[in-house]
Computed example of a mutant assay.
Amino acid sequence: MQIMKQLTPADHTPCDLGFAMPAEWDEHAATWMSWPGDDELWFGHLAGVRSEYAELVRTIARFEPVHLLVRDEESETDARERLAGEASVTFHRVPLDDSWVRDNGPLFVRNAAGEVALVNWEFNSWGGKFEWENDNRIPEYVAEYLGMGHWDRPEILEGGGLEITGDGVGLTTRSCFLTETRNPGLTEEGYTLLLNDTLGVRKLLWLDGGLENDHTDGHIDTITRFVDPQTIVTSVAEDTTDANYAVMQGNLEALRGMTDANGQPFRIVELPLPANRLEGAEGRLPPTYANFYIGNGFVVVPQYGDPNDGRALEILRPLFQGREVIGLPSRQIIEGGGSFHCLTQQQPAGSIWPGA
């Protein structure tokens, strides 16, 4: 598959103009989120999901502004009631299909002058699994609201499928990026060229797969995360009979052979998966502690009422010196197949790039 280039009017890629995607731990201007609004998509758990989601929004709003997309009058009324008094939350009435803004929202890039732009990728709901036409328009709305220059790309790419260090290294899974339901024929080499041009990823590392029954086809942000340019946290299953055990062990071994931007081995930290198997309406659920979100002075970590909840926090806290590591309930949210990182998208700090 030949990589298409839909460029700005000035006919430059983000890379041409010195833009690259900053690491999540860099300072944020705000966090973008989308309020849950469809009980069917949450398999009858919407009330519980909204309760947990509101706690997540309130927690993030303690540290940085939140832009909250709401799909209709009912959603906006519900969100405003649950978030009453939160002055750091800005509401936006926007048609939505679902809540996973990590995947359908924009990916922001920044240049050396501190100007921030965004890249608008195509979104097809993880290979056509659900409705997506409204969610696919979110990046254009964000760009218009912010007055921000942007690039519209023809390729399908979800933010949860890519981890980046901010110094040119990226990490993804073959089970997601190479599926035929996203960009048929686009190879590992092709992705490296594409992500170099658009996000400043010069070195793209590959793991084989993700969690069992993950409808994203194995997003990297559910299993393996960068916490700094030299340190990787990766999920492990401790039950050898678990279907996730062999896949997670394979990922662990692969990571031990990988190197950072300077050619040095990464520091690898093992993070246990929840001990208890959780079942949902469509089979096994994919709970994971790796789906944490890093913000200005904080990290929020999903908790499931599981024996490993506390262990996960103990492992993560020393890795985030200077940040408050906060465990929040996600037992209802996981019924939808994801957690906190999937529900958030960071806007880096910086001035708005108006476009070429």
Rank of each mutant, 00 (worst) to 15 (best):
D98H: 04
G149N: 05
D228S: 10
D97Y: 01
L252M: 06
L313V: 04
N213V: 00
P14M: 03
G218D: 05
L195A: 09
L96R: 01
E131T: 14
W206D: 07
A246W: 02
C15V: 12
Y141C: 02
W100G: 02
Q6A: 10
W151M: 04
I333C: 13
R174N: 12
G218R: 01
N308M: 11
I60C: 04
K203H: 15
G48Y: 08
G263V: 05
I334W: 00
H28Q: 05
Q249H: 14
A84W: 07
E122Q: 14
L96S: 07
H219R: 06
P287M: 05
H67E: 11
H215P: 04
E64D: 06
N134D: 13
R202M: 12
L252T: 07
G105S: 10
L255S: 07
A117L: 00
P106V: 09
Y293E: 03
H92F: 12
A312D: 06
R225L: 02
F226M: 01
V70C: 15
V300S: 00
A143D: 01
L83D: 10
K129N: 02
W121A: 05
S339E: 06
S34L: 06
R62D: 12
D242C: 06
P265T: 03
D221C: 03
G305Q: 00
W151V: 00
A275D: 09
P265L: 08
S34M: 13
F63T: 09
V89C: 08
L83F: 11
S99V: 02
F130L: 15
T231D: 04
R102C: 08
M148Y: 07
H67T: 12
G168T: 07
G114T: 05
L83N: 11
R71G: 09
I156Q: 11
S34E: 04
P318H: 12
L255F: 09
S51P: 02
E27L: 13
G185K: 02
E158C: 12
E188W: 11
Q264G: 10
P154V: 06
T259G: 11
E52L: 05
I3G: 09
F108Y: 13
T288S: 15
T172M: 08
N308A: 14
R323L: 05
L278K: 15
T8Q: 03
R58K: 14
F340Y: 15
E188T: 14
M148T: 13
T192M: 09
G305N: 10
L205D: 10
G161E: 11
D217Y: 07
M21F: 02
L68E: 07
G250A: 06
R331H: 15
W35L: 11
